[in-house]
Design a protein around this nucleic acid. Structure first.
Lengths: 188, 188
DNA sequence: AACCTATCGTTTCAGTTGAAACTATAAGAC
DNA sequence: GTCTTATAGTTTCAACTGAAACGATAGGTT
């Protein structure tokens, strides 16, 4: 299988897509060593995600004075009741410095509360403060309303399919992120 | 239709999702004024996109000393032969300062060329230099290979569906991005 | 010609970011 | 007890970012 215009490279984790020749857009590109960005998933995803984030952050920022980091933390706390900063890092894929700063700003604004763990003085448990809960009651409907507008072009089935396919991509990602567990029992 | 736990808000661009009750995840949340992030498309997209970008940028950065901005510009130039900085801004959703700096770095490294338009001295036409073309011949196969690994969990149909659904979302976005044309003749 | 407005790209500057250093706590080894 | 190593979260610092100001060019009006 001629993978890419004679170029050789060493680490090929998969040898071939057993179907052969599907994944049309990307594979077509591959055959001649060129890239068609419209068919390159990383590009498409980050492009769309960035546009959406930019547009959505207008709601967070202008109307509620929240950064994206702050909003994400609030949203997760609303869902999980209580979380450590470390867990938030994992959930949001933000680094701990960013999380630390956003958390501090939220605490200063009295939107969330911080409490030391009794058994491990290093960890702080974060949870929504009443005013944070109130704020979310205003932001969340707007965010959901806005999302509904965006996806109005999709049918119910398409919407579900999209989420499902994204989950699959996420799984593929996780598989590569932890290549050490290749033969492990698997925690899924 | 009870949209969100009694909260009222003024600008609701759509009145109802005529299907009613579909978009399960998001709409379920909406009914009780809470947000389930797993079903919130903006969150899912930016989360996955960020993880992918982070992972992919290891290839660009560590092995080829390219920032994401630089890589995007190279990839677009490979595809379009010649572009102005302005057009690159539109294509990549990056602001012009960022593009300007990335372009300068690429010119310094002799990966791209810059040439003034004869008729309009303000615009500079950018194109790949031979060494830039050579570099891409190395990077592109790796990027495509990496992508193939990620989407190996998807069937050919699923992969195409995903791209198609992303396009639909993009269209929804574009529709909202230009809300000024609501009553105008419409430039679509 | 002079003037006004618009556009392309660069630069400035203040705010944000993340890698690495750091502080404080924990837990195991001796 | 004292080491040593590990972990949670903070802070430092240098790099990056983007909004706004800028310089240069274009095109229209008078």
């Amino acid at each position: 299988m001629k993978l890419n215009s004679g170029q050789r490279y060493t680490l090929s984790r998969h040898d071939a897509n057993e179907g052969g020749g599907y994944l049309s857009s990307a594979m077509d590109s591959n055959d001649i060593g060129e890239l068609r960005l419209e068919g390159f998933l990383p590009y498409r995803l980050s492009n769309i995600a960035e546009r959406i984030s930019q547009a959505l952050s207008l709601i967070y920022a202008e109307q509620f004075d929240l950064t994206i980091a702050q909003w994400r933390i609030l949203a997760w706390l609303q869902q999980e009741r209580t979380l450590s900063a470390k867990r938030i890092c994992e959930l949001t894929a933000m680094d701990k410095a960013r999380v630390s700063r956003a958390v501090n700003q939220l605490v200063e604004r009295n939107l969330i509360q911080r409490q030391r763990d009794d058994e491990d003085q290093r960890t702080l448990w974060l949870s929504l403060a009443p005013s944070g809960r109130d704020l979310l009651k205003e932001v969340v409907p707007r965010a959901l309303d806005w999302e509904a507008d965006i996806v109005a072009t999709l049918s119910a089935t398409e919407y579900r399919d999209l989420l499902r396919l994204l989950s699959k991509v996420e799984k593929g990602l996780a598989r590569l992120d932890s290549p050490t567990v290749s033969t492990a029992p698997g925690t899924d």
